[in-house]
Design a protein around this nucleic acid. Structure first.
Lengths: 345, 345
DNA sequence: CCTGAAATTTTACGCGCGTAAAATTTTAAT
DNA sequence: ATTAAAATTTTACGCGCGTAAAATTTCAGG
């Protein structure tokens, strides 16, 4: 039933729907802000003539653009791809227009992304900073102007809140499991890991090991960047050949590192698993989407993507709705990880 | 040396740089369109006062927004994440502002993305359609208004060109390799696979097998959606238990399916590889970023991400530069795949 | 039918910039 | 120094919409 006359401006569209432009304008900002009967008339006209307001003219003068920025450090990492997907969906459902930026692991690009985002006058932002490598002042400047919630990777004093995993709990849980079910684990982690969670993971590992009366043993993997599988593989080969591990059990700092390490163990002819014929137990952390399908399937700690995404979006929308009180205290929300026992350890 | 006075409009910025607003406006559209001396003065002022033009006011009246849309079917798939990353980089280098959309495997979202993109008046678009499930008219309407290049997945008559892998060549190469080095392969593919490449892959498999004097044998994996590892795993378990494969060699339609199949073989206690103690040879297709790290590492056919990305961007920028001749013939560019022999087959 | 509140319309202005055309200046050459 | 071409400035207008304030209409309830 689409009419053929092209509607180009809101003025014209208001005319064919028999309303005034300001009313239509109000509708497009919030469909519930007009009378139901008026809304029906507009949506009727909307079906007959597919008109869309010019987004540039719209956002030029709006106080609230209702766009939300999502910045992740590395979208080619399936973890961030998944969480970005969840967050995107939730933002749309909450009536916002999400825009995803990936920093591709580069601090300069992260700063660029924040500037581009700032230029879009977003209503708010959900940020997972690069961490150690981040340009702190870029993040600080940004979050001073835009209501921001950090997720996955925390940075002191930036943004109005942080939502993430309780590394202390999650590492504690898997270390305890590994100790209970066999030999105590060494901890295998990237030396130059960009992610700030690394420090708290290391601390949690050390603390739990001591609590259980074991000597902590950390093996660092050299290598820069976000190519964790490669780093885990190369350092794994080296460490296995050098017999760097005092026990048969290795806890990797994250699943991608573990995937690389599993490949190294395979290459070295070492069978991984809990069974009798196995030489090595390997565990990961994060429960990446593909960890179910490694050989053997990876024992790990899962983070609840949905919970983290939902809480982040909830905090942000709340913040946006009463942004009067932007001086409230910075909130930190930590979720527990869940032990996922598969065949690898 | 940043001055503290806030410059908000181009008028003000033109004043402090001692130029007129139209000249500055010209600079921001194309930095090379002004005299070097003038350009230097602007960039000088740019360092002293960090001014950025209001993107909304800018794009409202510009003929060319210099934004490029990139639409991929599923960004959580590492293949698309990688290629999107490459394309993004190339677009930036070519002086455009890329914006990435993911359809998350849903045709409705794909159509939505195209509408959102259209509202941004992009200078051009690089599209990887969902394929079989795509809303054809949505794509058709879009590409009628925006210069578009398709990549990875082709759709007849849509866009000004297509860039992708020559499935016929790549499948031919790996089938030939598998036949030469052992028993001829069965083909393992999703029955409801959304990707349009599936048909040409099947055809290439059948044809090559017949050429070599072998009987083609296709095993379909049931399952909807983009969770290929799960589909490969579940269908793999079933097919292995039912002894559906006449030979010891299986060629999977893509690497993610192969990853799931490898997990199934592991679960069934079947050793995969070329060696004597191995029960099964498994190969994939696409060379996903993680295929190097499966156990055993996956034999597959690699596509040159960089070449595909570069050619796509090159075609599009050419198209944009002389868009007068938009009536030119639709071009198809196919790259050869390269056999990547690893331990799995 | 009356009344007050809520929704809508009218009116008017401005946002920050693009762009066209004419006037002026600068540049590079003769 | 002269001159034509190129770059820049001036001037002027418009883009499509947001938004505020005042005037008017619609609505629900009595």
């Amino acid at each position: 039933m689409m009419s053929d006359t092209k509607i180009k401006t809101m003025e014209e569209f208001a005319a064919v729907s028999g309303l005034s432009r300001p009313t239509v304008s109000k509708y497009f900002f919030d469909a519930n802000s007009v009378r139901p009967k008026t809304r029906a008339r507009i949506e009727d006209a909307l079906e007959r003539y597919d008109y869309r307001p010019n987004i540039y003219a719209m956002n030029q003068n709006r106080r609230l653009t209702r766009t939300l920025g999502i910045v992740v450090p590395f979208l080619a990492d399936p973890f961030f791809a998944e969480i970005a997907r969840n967050i995107e969906r939730l933002c749309i459902d909450a009536g916002f227009r999400p825009i995803v930026f990936s920093s591709h692991g580069e601090p300069e690009l992260e700063a660029d992304n924040l500037k581009s985002l700032l230029a879009m006058k977003p209503s708010g932002a959900l940020l997972a900073p690069l961490g150690r490598l981040s340009d702190r002042s870029a993040l600080s400047n940004f979050s001073a102007e835009v209501p921001s919630i950090l997720f996955d990777s925390n940075m002191d004093g930036i943004g109005e809140g942080f939502v993430g995993l309780d590394n202390s709990q999650s590492i504690g849980a898997i270390v305890r499991y590994l100790c209970d079910s066999g030999q105590p684990p060494s901890f295998f982690e990237g030396r130059m890991a960009p992610n700030p969670n690394v420090q708290s993971k290391l601390a949690a590992y050390t603390q739990t090991m001591k609590q259980l009366g074991h000597e902590p043993h950390i093996v660092y993997a050299d290598g820069e960047g976000w190519d964790f599988e490669s780093i885990g593989y190369n350092a794994g080969i080296r460490a296995l050949q050098a017999r760097d591990f005092p026990t048969n059990t290795i806890l990797c700092g994250n699943d991608r590192l573990a995937v690389g390490f599993l490949a190294a163990a395979y290459e070295e002819g070492l069978r991984v698993g809990r069974g009798d014929g196995c030489a090595l137990r390997v565990a990961g952390h994060d429960d990446h989407p593909f960890s179910r399908f490694t050989c053997p399937p990876l024992t790990t700690v899962s983070q609840d993507f949905n919970a983290i995404a939902a809480k982040s979006v909830e905090l942000l929308t709340e913040l946006i709705d009463h942004d009067s009180q932007r001086q409230t205290e910075r909130t930190t929300t930590l979720f527990d990880g869940t032990l996922v026992i598969r065949a690898s350890a």
